[in-house]
Design a binder for these strands. Structure first.
Length: 530
RNA sequence: GGCCCCUUCGUCUAGCGGUCUAGGACAUCGCCCUUUCACGGCGGCAACACGGGUUCGAGUCCCGUAGGGGUCACCA
């Protein structure tokens, strides 16, 4: 039998990074076996605009390259696949059949309790320190009782009639044999009075109807498994293989990573650094930085600032899985070859921004220049730095990318080199660098003015030529390299740091470079403020 | 609180009874390289939660304890 796995997001409008990891494991499992990966939308409780809230999630999957064989259409409005529809809100008829079946075979009953009444019981049990066991006193198991409860103005939900003794055991692919006492289980509601069904029922029915073979999800579902097994068995279904993944924990902590705790995470310096990096880039590209989506817990964040899917996937793969004692580098292809549930870890793994960044940096270095340039365009465009896609612009982008090399960790870092793309009179000058290297260094300025004359005489302006020129100059003046180079750098690039000086000169060209030196020296001699 | 899960360097992890004076990676520190920054090279610091067993021998098996976490909805 072919493997079929699924990821079942709620249409919340965002894709949680921990969810991505769960999805990745499911996707790998299906793809490596030539099986199918499905997306199913758990919108049983949703009254919002589903297709709209779904889009960011689908976009995330597309971006990461995790394609689905069955599920919603790309616009989030329809379904594709033989077991559809893939929206639980549209599958009521399947659930209805299941509910009736459960009612008929005595594994469920109509219950006329009011929520408040049960709540009282629950609190009493909790105070007494024991598990709440519903005595089924509002159970409408006969026509007479039903009529009587209805006469009181009560309406009925459908509850599971759970076993009250014995154990539920099952083999979890990650945790081994797992055991729960049936007596600790509740008579869970599976259908509301209005006829809509709840998650557990829907999930089990859908997994069966969609022929899911492996249910791979986060541990928080582990304790839900007995009731799902009960439903499945009561309905005569074969059980899927279960695998409960450890959750992704917060940076520097052990609690589950949550999108809602951004303020807390920002107190962690690594997490905060990542966030600040994102903000710096986003503020340039005009991206709205609302916390709903622009948050390192959400996958959109990474797309917006130019992370590479390969890096994110590689990092996430290793969050709870390893191949051996040393292999860390996995392309998607390699993941497909190596992944197995057997090597998934049991304990939670905390999200480490620094390590993510390290993977990002590594994958970025591997990306061909042409690809990088294509990715860089949108950033430069939305920041208003590059207006059109000309051959000239493309060449300059590639030249800057090549020169900047691994200084560019995320694609959005290209914006740090904006001065290479803008007009000479619009160069953004770093005030601190200007003060230190130019205005505050009279000798350097004099040397720079003199060196400017040498540069102007050059017939070739490539890196080798300007380097030789400076070396000769330094020698003839009897000075040291660093007595002039900083002033030169700041005047030409506007910044105190950057890539190779001579690469920078070559990229700008003679005319631009000389003009920038002139401008810089001029502003030193004027009032001194830039 | 009940039930369940988890526990090796700061972090991700390797380890499936002797090869562990515990390996790798990220981070960190030092040195080298160097026009700045980054990269790179070399080196350092750094962990088996605790207590009992079992065994000739335990990071590895068992039982406790402690800590952390998850879950207990007419949410998913």
């Amino acid at each position: 039998m072919s493997i079929r796995t699924r990821f079942a997001p709620s249409p919340t409008g965002y894709l949680h990074i921990g969810g991505v990891r769960t999805a990745l494991f499911n996707w790998l499992l299906a793809r490596q076996a030539g099986g199918q990966f499905l997306l199913r939308i758990d919108d049983t409780d949703s009254d919002r605009n589903v297709s709209e809230a779904l889009l960011p999630i689908l976009r995330g999957f597309q971006w990461l390259g995790m394609d689905w064989d069955e599920g919603p259409t790309e616009d989030g409005k329809g379904s594709v696949g033989a077991c559809g529809p893939y929206f639980q809100s549209q599958r009521g008829s399947y659930y209805q059949v299941a509910v009736e079946c459960l009612l008929a075979n005595g594994n469920a009953y109509r219950d006329y309790a009011r929520p408040e009444e049960l709540q009282v019981e629950r609190e009493i049990a909790e105070k007494a320190g024991r598990t709440f066991v519903y005595d089924r006193r509002w159970m409408g198991d006969t026509a007479e009782k039903q009529a009587a409860f209805q006469a009181e103005g009560r309406s009925a939900v459908v509850r599971l009639k759970m076993p009250r003794e014995g154990k539920c055991t099952f083999a979890d692919q990650i945790r081994g044999q797992v055991e729960f006492n049936w007596s600790d289980e509740q008579d869970h509601v599976i259908q509301r009075a209005d006829g809509t069904c709840l998650y557990h029922l829907a999930s089990v029915v859908d997994d069966h109807e969609m022929r899911i073979t492996h249910v791979v999800r986060a541990v928080e579902h582990l304790s839900n498994t007995p009731r799902q097994i009960f439903i499945a068995q009561s309905l005569g279904y074969d059980l899927p293989v279960y695998a409960h993944l450890p959750f992704v924990a917060e940076t520097g902590g052990t609690a589950k990573l949550s999108k809602r705790k951004l303020d807390k995470y920002l107190k962690n310096k690594d997490f905060s650094a990542l966030f600040v990096l994102g903000q710096r880039i986003a503020s340039r590209t005009g991206k709205q930085v609302d916390q709903e989506t622009f948050n390192p817990v959400i996958v959109d964040f990474y797309r917006e600032i130019g992370f590479l899917p390969a890096a994110i996937l590689n990092y996430l793969l290793l969050l709870g899985w390893s191949l051996d004692d040393s292999t860390e580098d996995f392309s998607v292809q390699q993941m497909l070859e190596s992944f197995s549930l057997a090597r998934v870890t049991k304990s939670p793994a905390s999200f480490d921004p620094q390590k993510l960044l390290a993977f990002q940096s590594r994958w970025m270095q591997r990306l061909p220049l042409e690809d990088k340039a294509l990715l860089a365009y949108p950033f430069l465009e939305s920041a208003g730095i590059v207006k059109e896609r000309t051959t000239e612009n493309l060449q300059r982008i590639q030249a800057v990318l090549a020169a900047a090399d691994d200084r560019i960790k995320v694609v959005g870092d290209i914006l740090d080199y904006e001065n290479f793309f803008i007009a000479d009179d619009l160069v953004v000058m770093d005030a601190e660098a200007f003060d230190k290297r130019l205005r505050g260094d009279v000798d350097a300025c004099q040397l720079l003015a003199k060196f400017r004359g040498k540069l102007a005489e050059l017939t070739s302006f490539d890196a080798a030529a300007t380097e030789k020129c400076l070396k000769d100059f330094v020698e003839s003046e009897g000075i040291k390299f660093n007595q002039i180079i900083h002033a030169l750098r700041v005047s030409v690039t506007g910044k105190a740091v950057g890539f190779g000086m001579f690469d920078a000169l070559a990229i700008l060209g003679s005319e631009s470079a000389l003009r920038r030196i002139d401008t810089a020296l001029l502003s030193v001699n004027s009032t001194g403020t830039t």
